[in-house]
Design a protein around this nucleic acid. Structure first.
Lengths: 222, 222
DNA sequence: GATCACATTACAGAAATCTGTATTGACATA
DNA sequence: TATGTCAATACAGATTTCTGTAATGTGATC
């Protein structure tokens, strides 16, 4: 089993809960906790420098902001930063998030190893997840495993994401086209962009750009 | 002090945490708990019918959905339903939400008596809040009390909310105008609507409708 | 009653959106 | 090589957005 684990979670109670589960149900005792992303990153760096690396990171996604100024404000940044130094570290996300698109994104873009939804059965799920990840598996939350949601999901490529992002920032399609040309991203023709956006309308059943952005915001894609 | 309290919160751990605080720190022992809004409503109704009314409701805002089909899915509906039967019941919201606009809305529209943010100092805040509410005060979370945020906040009236809502659903301004006329909501002239939306652009520093909707979605106003 | 401030309304025009059709080029397959 | 498919592109138009100006109405104040 994992020998050394880092837990990043800002709510003290949840943090202690995770540690207790790792202790009692799995028998992991070498655990460090952090209430802030930056704090977690520092502990990770120290362990890495001391050649006593963490084998598993369990982290929340959203960290409440308070008086302490943080350079990292979300678990996503934390994961990216840590993985850039130690690519083989296993990562389990423990979060409130239950939107399929977003969870899917975590597995696809960040290559996380497991996901546990905060909720009524979090303890059982967490134990199963840690076990599974230790055995080298990718552990999806039960709500999404074998679920058509992940398969029938609308696939958005980088250009789609750029378009959604820029549109939500209020840029016109002409402005976006100019930006794309500057950055040598193709396609960047007028009609190609129009068609892409129209396809997004179809995918999300949106009536117009405003509706589209509202929908993807609700889905948590943006 | 309050003699009978109803706690609605879907996470068992948090639920127990609230009860423990009420027990240990305030000395309230007649407490009922509910993990679902509907369940909370039923317990409320039963107590009301039995003439053993609750004096205080402590509720979360968001309730995770699971296999049980619920008619009420948010604390907001629960509060409205309960207040429609027993208008003088005191209500404290205990939630993750930390967006000033939304919290402000709870006080203004729902007339809640207190608000406690889930977080690092929730215990202390909850105790102070229950005390304050018992003394007849309205208790804002410390982050917002005496804070300019509440005062400098952009004031949105019903029409503003309708416009934001309809725009986010992808309706054109012409369609919205027609709707407003049908429902006898004024103003509903072309230019009045245009001007309202333009004012929203100014308020939220939005470039266009799409940008506006993205901003208010991020702020949680929609 | 006169005046001022303010909100609603009407109208108008430039810009952007959205939806078509038609053409071109790249690529895989027979 | 020939063919079919798909994406990118060009172009066009009808609709909507967004921003002005000007006219009208309403309510408060002197």
């Amino acid at each position: 089993m994992f020998m050394k684990v880092l837990v990043a979670e800002d709510y003290e109670i949840a943090n202690q809960g995770i540690i207790k589960v790792l202790n009692d149900k799995i028998g992991i005792h070498n655990i460090e906790e952090a209430k802030y992303c930056d704090d977690a990153y520092l502990k990770f760096r120290k362990a890495h420098n001391d050649q006593e690396v963490f084998e598993l990171l369990i982290t929340d996604l959203s960290f409440r902001e308070d008086h302490k100024i943080q350079t990292r404000t979300s678990g996503i940044e934390l994961i990216k930063d840590i993985r850039s130094i130690q690519p083989d570290i296993k990562v389990i996300v423990y979060s409130q998030e239950n939107r399929p698109d977003k969870i899917n994104m975590l597995f696809e873009k960040l290559n996380i190893n497991g996901y546990v939804c905060k909720g009524q059965h979090a303890i059982k799920e967490l134990v199963a997840c840690v076990d599974g990840v230790y055995q080298g598996n990718t552990v999806w939350p039960p709500e999404l495993a074998n679920n058509s949601a992940a398969n029938t999901m609308i696939h958005l490529d980088d250009l789609d994401m750029i378009l959604l992002e820029e549109l939500s920032k209020g840029f016109t399609k002409k402005e976006i086209r100019t930006k794309l040309k500057k950055q040598n991203i193709s396609p960047n023709g007028e009609s190609a962009i129009d068609k892409r956006v129209s396809k997004l309308f179809d995918d999300f059943k949106a009536k117009n750009t405003t509706h589209l952005v509202a929908i993807v915001k609700d889905l948590g894609i943006l």
